[in-house]
Design a protein around this nucleic acid. Structure first.
Lengths: 127, 127
DNA sequence: TATTGACTTAAAGTTAACTCCAAGTGGTAT
DNA sequence: ATACCACTTGGAGTTAACTTTAAGTCAATA
């Protein structure tokens, strides 16, 4: 698979994919004789994994650390598990923040609805 | 309330609070005769609101837009409601991304647990 | 009176995560 | 053969959201 194909498949720009490789988030992608990347299953699996983690806002540095530990092998299982648990904690916190904000947005939208329908006075609205 | 007190209350640095004011996320804070900020209820309410929205990752520019509309008054109710609805949609998407990532993290952590307990071979693990 | 400490400002600096650019290579279509 | 196109690189540029810095004001304390 060429970088253009992978780019389309995962909706990441070629630049972003090359950046991920340069940063070590993806193992070195195989090349043809002209030095052009030829993505295999493993490369794609990593891209998909990184994309998922990034979509939740996990930091590049953390992912780099995880990938580094992964390549060190069996000795790092404990450390990797701890890293993932820490990230899970972070995401659970983030989820709560978003939930709280969503509730607030829902309330405000409801209030605006009532104002629009004349059920409520505009000047009674607060930040 | 001084900026130091507000800073402690909302766990935002004084610099961040001044930055928010400069950017127009908070209405102009009242000052004493020496030009020192004296935060009133309204200022605090705005800070609290902005903090909540920011904690969910809502952008400064969007919040600036919302605040601007707010000060324009009743004419902008429809536009404000639409803005908030758009942000709600964004947050719902983000929530889904985080949920998907959390599920994946849970699975991986479980796998690492099983490896640690010798129930699973390390080399069978994938990205 | 001198200094301490909390406040003020405008403007420059930082960080993360891309994103773009310029210059170059090689395979293919006209 | 020549032009085109997708790819390559290192490195510079961008953006958001702060964060730091330098220089200054004022009230209270030693």
């Amino acid at each position: 698979m060429t970088i253009a194909e992978v780019s389309k498949k995962y909706e990441l720009t070629p630049d972003t994919i090359r950046y991920y490789e340069k940063e070590g988030l993806i193992p070195k992608v195989p090349r043809n004789k002209n030095g052009i990347r030829n993505f295999d299953e493993e490369s794609c699996a990593w891209i998909e994994f990184i994309k998922c983690m990034r979509s939740a806002g996990m930091e590049i540095e953390i992912l780099k650390k995880y990938v580094e530990l992964y390549w060190k092998g069996a000795d790092t299982v404990k450390e990797r598990k701890e890293l993932l648990e820490e990230q899970r904690t972070r995401l659970l916190k983030k989820q709560q923040d978003i939930n709280a904000t969503l509730e607030r947005l829902n309330y405000k939208i409801k209030v605006y609805d009532e104002i629009q329908q004349g059920k409520r006075k505009h000047f009674m609205e607060k930040p």
